[in-house]
């Protein structure tokens, strides 16, 4: 095993993964630097979600290594990876995936409560974050009474409330219209920069990728060198996929 470069908070080498035989990732390597916002671009089915799940320890790659701050994630036990996800990472799904029984602020405070924070601290912190994301007035409502954009912002607040080391966002703006999309992604990136949270952002959207510090492109489970927006859709991508 080779130790990763020092300035990378998260580092992956030749990740290979297949879902029950269907290939998803094929030898992907990348490094994520401390405090940067890295966009993972690519069309549907290019392996973005699988890459993020491997990096966050939800999946163990069949080949390759994942390192987080000098500790090997790929060799950790399931319990350790669970603890890592709880204490150092957070995750935003394409769908808000809130707990329907809990109110908005309880949903946002859930990661803190899971870490064992006191009820009062969790509530104060969650309400602060909801206010910062402009949904403080919905704090006492349940998810079913909210709009999809509001739910997604609660999911963002839930991911930010613990100020994690790395935030994984898997197409966080997928179900939203353009205005809501811009607002969600801007609040996410602004919060990440002001709290120096490293963000790995999977997206299909070129505008979203433009807000990132660096872009990594995936196609058919392989990493390709960054392309211009016109080329990525066109023949250049096709020739590279061979």
């Amino acid at each position: 095993m080779v130790a990763p470069p020092d300035n990378d908070v998260l580092w992956a080498r030749s990740l290979t993964y297949s879902h029950n035989g269907s290939p998803a990732l094929d030898g992907v390597s990348l490094g994520v630097r401390e405090g940067e916002i890295l966009a993972v671009c690519g069309p549907r089915g290019s392996g973005k979600t699988t890459l993020l799940r491997c990096l966050s320890g939800q999946l163990v790659p069949q080949e390759g290594e994942v390192w987080f701050n000098d500790s090997p994630v790929h060799t950790m036990s399931a319990v350790l990876r669970e603890r890592l996800r709880r204490d150092r990472f957070s995750w935003i799904d394409p769908e808000p995936a809130l707990v329907p029984e809990l109110t908005a602020w309880e949903n946002a405070a859930l990661p803190l409560l899971l870490r064992g924070a006191s009820h009062r601290v969790a509530k104060v912190t969650a309400l602060e974050w909801l206010d910062r994301l402009d949904i403080g007035q919905c704090a006492r409502k349940r998810p079913y009474a909210l709009l999809q954009a509001q739910r997604q912002r609660i999911a963002v607040a839930r991911a930010l409330v613990t100020t994690p080391s790395v935030l994984f966002a898997d197409e966080p703006t997928a179900p939203l219209h353009r205005t809501d999309r811009a607002q969600v992604i801007r609040t996410l990136t602004t919060a990440a920069r002001s709290h120096s949270i490293t963000v790995v952002l999977a997206t299909l959207d070129e505008e979203v990728a433009a807000l990132a510090d660096r872009t990594v492109s995936l196609l058919d489970g392989r990493r390709i060198s960054s392309l211009g927006p016109t080329e990525a859709e066109g023949q250049a991508a096709c020739s590279l996929s061979v």
Partner: peptide, 8 residues
């Protein structure tokens, strides 16, 4: 969802 959040 809870598993994703790292709930043991």
């Amino acid at each position: 969802t809870l598993h994703h959040l790292g709930a043991p």
